[in-house]
Structure formats: C-alpha cells, structure tokens
Design a protein around this nucleic acid. Structure first.
Lengths: 207, 207
DNA sequence: TTTCCTACTGACCACCTGTTCAGTACATTG
DNA sequence: CAATGTACTGAACAGGTGGTCAGTAGGAAA
C-alpha cells in the first residue's frame, strides 16, 4: 500500500519526515522543513496527515511495519535465529544489518524512538525481548547454552548489547574506524561478540 | 564552586534545567518551564546564563565535571578497575551506579546526550573508550584475558554493553522487573554479565 | 458540457518561543 | 547618609510555529 517505490506526494512527505525526524528529532523539524524537502507546500502536509502529530503517527506506523516484516523472517524460523555453527544470522544486530540497506534512515529513527521513551518503542523492545527469551530457551533446550540460573537477565543482556551497537552506532564507528553496520564492520563486531559469547572474555583468576 | 548543596537561585535554575533537560530533552523544555520549576521569573534565567544556550552549556559543564570526578577515582587506581575476584567495581556500569545516587537526573541526561549526537557526548565516549582499552590491555598483561586478536573491538564491545544498560535503562527495568541501577538490580545484572564474560553464554556445538 | 471530487497552493491567524528592558528591592560600600 | 551594584521582576517584542481556509487546477463521472 505504501511501498518504497511509492512516488506520490504523500509518500514523499512521509519519507522526508522519516529521514528528517531521524536526523534532528521530530521537535526540531518543522512542517515547512518537511514540505521543502518534499517540494510541496506546507499546507499539503497538513492536508494529507491532518496534523504534525498525524504525520508522526504515520511515520511510526510505517517504521513499525518495516520491523514487523523484518522479524517475520526470523520468527517463522526461530531455530535458525541465534544458532551456532556458521549461521547467516547469529544476532539481532546482524538481522538488523542484513535487513536495513546502507544509508537507510531507519537506524537514526530507531535511536530517536528509543531515546524519546515513546510507548511504541517500549512495545517494540518488549516484542524483541520476548523473541530473545524464546531463542535463549531454545538454546537451553538443545543444550547449547551455558548453565544459567537467570535466563531472563541473560536474554535482556544479549538483546541490550545488540541494541546498543545500533543505538550507539556512530560512537562505535568512531572508536573502531569501521562502520559496524557495514558487512566488514559487522563481521568484525560479530566475531568479537561471538568469541565472548562462546569462550568468555576474562580468564578465571585465583580467588 | 557549585556543589549540590548550593541553594542559590542560580544553582536551582541549573539543577532544574538538568532534570528537565534529561526528562524531556532541551528542545521540549522552555525557559518558562525552568523558571517555574525554580520558582523564579523567566527573566532571571537569562540574567544568570545569558541565553538558553548558555544555560545548556552550564549544565553540560556541570555534568562533565561530575563525570570527571567519577572517573578520577577509577583512573587513579586502574588496576582495581574491572578486575576479577570479588571487586567492588568490576564494570563501567557498576562504577556509574556506585557514583550516582538513586533518583539522580544524571542517567537521563547522559541518555539524551549520547543519543543526541552532541559533540560533548563524543568526547566523553572517546575518553571512556581509551580507559577501557587501557583496562583491557592491563588484563591482557596480567594474563587474565582470553586470547583475542582484536582488543580494540573487545574494548568497544565491553564499553558499549555497559553503556547500553545505562542508555536503555528503562527498557531493561521493564523487561526484568528490577531497576538495574539499584543495588539488587545491579547485583543481578553484574552477575549475569560476569558469568558471560568468564564462561561465555553459549556452548560449542559440533561443526 | 456541467458537476463533482481530490490534490494542491499560499496567505493568513493565534499562539508560543527566546530575548530585551525599564524598573524595583536590597545589601554593600564610600 | 548617598551611591553603587547586584539579584530579581514582569511587561513587552520580534520571530517562528502549527494549523486554517478560501481558492485554483484538473481529471472523472453524469
């Protein structure tokens, strides 16, 4: 209904809003900014979306549907998700990186969404958390998990670590000199993470 | 010069601004909001800080000095930082939790700072990253580190994981039902993290 | 053609914003 | 005492904001 190839003015307004909201935050973007970006009059923005809030809601819904589509792949085959060996997708971050094309405004928008404390962000994370718990339980059932008393905390730990890489993406890129969402950067990051998740990072020391 | 016990109108304005900026973001807070919170007239805010931007700068400087003081403890004894055994401080997050009192506006402010892409946040993270690299190197020198080719990536991974808990604090609290910055919550979180960092999370599976 | 509907424009309005400024209260200094 | 300076107020102002609205253009239906 509203694909990326949608070139109607309405879709262009929504895409511009998505990008600008992600870059500067919704409060710092005016209706006139969005209209200028989409080469339409400010009035048309309100005509199509009723209000600025209506536009925000529409952008939210659009992003949400993208994430739903992204997760649908993982959910339909939960066993392959986060499994060992040489998996295509071994973490949430990798799933994210594989689903979002380079230069996409989605990561920046997600960053703002989580920052703003928007209820939609809460729902999103809750959904992802449940998926992670399911995955951890599956790993435990197949004997591929280290003995752990607190699976919920482990799931939260794993999920939050992946989300952090996305949310703090720019800082990671600065520190490492590699974009961790690019194929090479993701290989480096996933390799490090997987090393830690399999063997740990520290050795035992005499107590 | 500007301690927490400072009850001058100037300090109250700064403290109110710190809290409100952290809660809603600087753009969503008006000078009148801050003045009302501090029980002063809007004019006084500008009288003391010149402009809203001047107030933002003052708040930034105040927060920065707090972090400097926090890190001074860790830097003066880097060996104790992130060391094994039964340490008081075994992670950046724990250092953070121990230095920031409950109900402090600092975590929320840090969250905004990091996610807003402010240059000050970049400088802060760079500083913390260097400290983490130093710590990782120290661990490697003392033989307490698993063999790793990519120490920079490991340092970034560890730092980002700790920051994630702070930045995504509210979501973690929701998922776990425990505030991960409270003493009990931190114990739970640190226990999970330390388990993973010592033994890993997943077991090897046949290739 | 006439009618209608939808996309679209641009001028306009009420409101809120950061900021200015003349003026007050009051303690300190000469 | 007068004078000086500082903390402080509240009314005002200019600019920008989201939102409204009368009106235009143009295609489809009658």
């Amino acid at each position: 209904m509203a694909s990326d190839r949608d070139v109607t003015a309405r879709a262009q307004i929504r895409n511009c809003a998505l990008r600008l909201f992600g870059e500067r935050g919704p409060d710092a973007v005016t209706v006139r900014d969005i209209a200028a970006c989409a080469n339409v009059s400010p009035g048309l923005v309100l005509h199509h979306f009723g209000s600025k809030q209506g536009l925000r809601d529409a952008v939210d819904a659009h992003v949400l549907s993208m994430f739903d589509a992204m997760l649908a792949t993982a959910i339909e085959d939960p066993a392959a998700f986060a499994k060992g060996g040489t998996p295509q997708i071994s973490s949430f971050a990798e799933l994210f990186a594989s689903a979002i094309p380079a230069g996409s405004p989605i990561p920046a928008y997600l960053r703002r969404l989580l920052l703003s404390g928007d209820p939609m962000g809460k729902k999103l994370i809750q959904q992802w958390f449940e998926l992670t718990v399911t995955t951890v339980d599956a790993l435990a059932a197949s004997g591929n998990l280290q003995p752990t008393q607190d699976r919920a905390a482990l799931a939260a730990f794993l999920l939050v670590n992946d989300l952090a890489m996305i949310v703090l993406h720019d800082y990671v890129a600065d520190a490492l000199g590699t974009d961790p969402l690019s194929p090479e950067g993701m290989r480096r990051w996933a390799s490090t993470a997987f090393d830690v998740y399999r063997h740990g990072a520290f050795t035992k020391e005499e107590s």
